[in-house]
Amino acid sequence: MQQTVAAAEFLAACALSRVDAVSGFARDGLLSSQEVFTQQLVTGLSNGMIIALIAIGYTMVYGIIELINFAHGDLCMLGAYFALTVVGALGVDQWAGTGGIMGLVLVLVGTAAFCGSLNWSINRLAYRPLRKASKLSLLVSAIGASFILVNLGLFWGGLPMDVFADGTSSAAPKAFPALVSAAPAAQIGDVIYSRTDLLVLCVTLPLMVALTYLVRFTKLGKAMRAVAQNPTGASLMGIDVERVIGASFFIGGSLGGFATVVYSLYNQTVSFQMGYRMGMDAFIAAVLGGIGNLPGAVLGGILIGVIRSMSDGYLEARWTNTVVFGILILILVFRPSGLLGAKLREKV
């Protein structure tokens, strides 16, 4: 009998602790002011633009071969390691003035080329042999590729270089040097707009414009749209489908390369495990916007960035992942086509 009472008390305590937690969130919410809100919004938008750029990589690949490219986040992680290696080997962080800007451009373009080529090669080695296999075999292969990339990141972190802290603990997170000065670019009220915020805009916006141009107005873009609609039909029209798929992987990967440099500059630390988180955020963004839909990926990325930052600010940071994954599940269950995606089509 006593045990039953104790058990009941325990369950009641569990229920109460939930109520406590919820009311705690509400209290925190009341305390914050307009400035805090705007600051969180700025951070959220900046992170959101980065997520959007990575999400485009997911959505392009999904639009064309219906593969959730699980390795995309880890590709970006390797990109960050590549950028860090370039910075360390050339001493880019010591370049001053115009040289510094040139160095930044060099790192951005180099990483983009690296990630693009790597993504192209992964497609060639791990996905292309499975073109006729089931979608889930392809997904399993992508998960395998992701694990291989994670392991390569672990190896890479052991390089005996200064930027990797001599590589003595390869698994530890590495500090990414600040190539952009930490001084604020502008301050309105108490809200600080940092130079990295500015950098995010300067990198992401032109790329998105360029991509829109590419997909809408060039011959390659037309071919990509055709392959996305109907690969067989496209190949009958004389389009080299494999070449188009390869190009999509390259473009998606290089956008991820740009994004990962900006991400590393923004968050100032990289680790071999960051790809999973980055990849999940971007994938959730792509699904939220409607996977296969490029403007949807951007919208989704911005929304996820803002939701994350608001959740960090107003709930608790430790619940942020739960919130984001909860959103993912709700979308997939109730509106799998996302916000901007087309209507569901049931294949029989």
């Binding site: 959505t59 392009m60 639009g63 064309i64 219906e66 979608k135 991509l211 829109t212 997909v215 809408r216 873009g221 990509m224 749209r225 996305a228 609609q229 409607g290 996977i291 296969g292 839909n293 490029l294 403007p295 799998p336 086509s337 996302g338 995606g341 087309a342 209507k343 569901l344 089509r345 049931e346 294949k347 029989v348």
Partner: peptide
């Protein structure tokens, strides 16, 4: 079972 319910394939700029 080959039945898939995914968003209609598209790549819209």
């Amino acid at each position: 079972g080959g039945a898939s319910s995914v968003a209609a394939k598209e790549l819209r700029p």
